[in-house]
Design a protein around this nucleic acid. Structure first.
Lengths: 320, 320
DNA sequence: TTCTCCCATAACTTCGCGTTATGTTTGCGA
DNA sequence: TCGCAAACATAACGCGAAGTTATGGGAGAA
């Protein structure tokens, strides 16, 4: 009584968006030739696409008509759902275009404190002016935490610094899978009362008797290391990572300090306080840390490019 | 300042449903390997599919993570729209399965009047019992109009008849593109008063002096042709294609008639009226007319199969 | 360190999906 | 009635997408 139907259910995997595009074009144009012209294909391409689809489905999708072709019920089903599918694909393509064209996207930046008032505002200002659709988040973090944030995918890009030869350099330990690019060398400056400042640079060895005001843990480590390289151990009286406080302490005659040049740019020197470079150049290095693949995310790639393009000479940074 | 983006907008043609399936599986499984297992592919297949997609889009869709992989913003966009796309594809596949599995579908049938009360009810009864989801429409139409309906795609299947040697046979003229299958031979019967009926069959030549009641135009043509083949021209007194009316006229002694056997099945003989077969077999042929490709529409194919499977012997039809 | 998990790559095969060239059918017009 | 034109199908072919297995390398965990 009943016919010998295969009765195999149609899997959605047997439907592809290209076939739906073709069906819709045929429905709109009324003929295979018209669809081919509309889609920019040759006539046999459409004919074969439909033929393959019908073979997969095991039923006719179009039937030849006097002039052109018309859809079967199955074809109508496909044409109806094609509208939904193709609308969604168009929407996705639009959003991807926005990401690709830097009209949308989010970049999560982390950087160390003295960058917060110097590099970061200029960077984000340039970027939002150039690409208003790109959004940024920013968290201030010391290098170890910043690196960890990138590792955890909590941040896309991190600006960090490291002192030469630092054994605790977070970039050395378990930075597996991260890309670390040196950006600039940042000059270290001695901060001291004007009265005690010589006219030119200062030899570290002359400072063996001074009281020192230390900064963050790793900065203090660098200070101790530098002093011991010059044959003495610094007398550390005060500790704070608050730069204006350090300067005020220097102004109050409580000691001298060794600060990176970005700290100067962020906080004006109090009167009576000045800076001098050490006789033997002292610097730390600023790095850009990113997860691999960051270059293949348009907004992040654009941000890294913008970072490299920053004019940083006014802050005492040297490209290197 | 800005980076060198290609900035080429993403075309929705660069997105295919397979990539979306893969993206969704990766999003769900959290790793490429898990997605491969879920989809039944090898791990490199998924890896390469994503790689090709990223190459087409010009941006990353996933980033390697500690354990497995995670989506970028672009990947999230795709995963979000993938839900819509795949839902629509599943819906389409379901509907196609219903069509394929004879749980839905519409078959438009046309047939000649005497089939309306015989063949067609039995056919549609069988079909709706066997396949409740399949819907039917039916229009009664004489063969020329029925053939035209199929040609115009106003009907999917038509039951028609033709008399042997009919020069106006609608199946001969402009049936291009239609499939015509002979189904059965239908016996023609003489309808006459019982009083005048011989016990066995009747030789046509003995009826030269009778008055005749004619049916439809083509039936009348057949009658005239048959009579002239036997050397006389029938005296046509009454014309109607109303079968009960013909029988009533015969019962009233107004003449005799030549009717196809299906007409008998549809209308009971009045008392005093009987039928006899002509001595030399007289028949017409019942055809199935369908548009090409009808066999590739499941519901229509099932209907044609059901037509062939009909038990029609009780109506005086012979397979041939 | 070593083991395990996961992803990428290489090398290869197959077939989907285009192309151009050509055939077939239908409807139309001289 | 006889080509002509229009539309779809088919053939033959090429390329690249998309799958496979085998293998390598990096990162986390015992």
């Amino acid at each position: 009584m009943t016919s010998t139907q295969s009765d195999r259910p149609i899997q959605s995997a047997e439907l592809d968006s290209q076939s739906l595009r073709v069906i819709r074009a045929v429905a709109d144009g009324g003929s295979i030739t018209a669809a081919a012209n509309a889609l920019g294909y040759s006539q046999p391409a459409i004919s074969q696409t439909i033929g393959r689809l019908e073979k997969r489905l095991g039923m006719a999708v179009v039937v030849r008509s006097a002039r052109g072709v018309r859809l079967t019920e199955a074809g109508e089903v496909l044409a109806r759902h094609a509208a939904t599918v193709l609308r969604a694909l168009d929407a996705a393509a639009d959003e991807l275009s926005d990401l690709s064209g830097l009209r949308s996207g989010l970049v999560r930046v982390a950087a160390f404190p003295s960058a917060s008032s110097t590099i970061v505002p200029r960077l984000l200002g340039n970027m939002t002016k150039e690409h208003p659709g790109v959004r940024f988040s920013y968290v201030e973090a010391e290098p170890p935490e910043a690196v960890q944030a990138v590792r955890d995918h909590a941040a896309d890009l991190a600006l960090t610094f490291s002192y030469p030869g630092d054994p605790d350099d977070p970039h050395l330990a378990s930075t597996a899978g991260l890309t670390i690019t040196p950006l600039w060398r940042e000059q270290m400056l001695l901060v001291l009362p004007e009265a005690e400042a010589p006219t030119t640079s200062i030899d570290f060895a002359d400072l063996a008797g001074a009281d020192w005001i230390a900064g963050c843990a790793r900065c203090r480590g660098h200070l101790v290391k530098t002093c011991s390289a010059h044959g003495f151990e610094p007398r550390l009286g005060f500790e704070t990572d608050n730069v204006p406080a350090v300067m005020a302490m220097v102004a109050a005659g409580l000691g001298i300090a060794l600060l990176p040049s970005l700290a100067m740019a962020g906080s004006p020197l109090p009167s009576g306080v000045t800076t001098r470079p050490p006789a033997r150049d002292d610097y730390r290095t600023i790095h850009l840390v990113s997860a691999p693949g960051a270059s293949r995310v348009p907004a992040i790639a654009a941000t890294t490019t913008a970072i490299r393009a920053l004019n940083v000479s006014s802050w005492g940074l040297e490209t290197g």
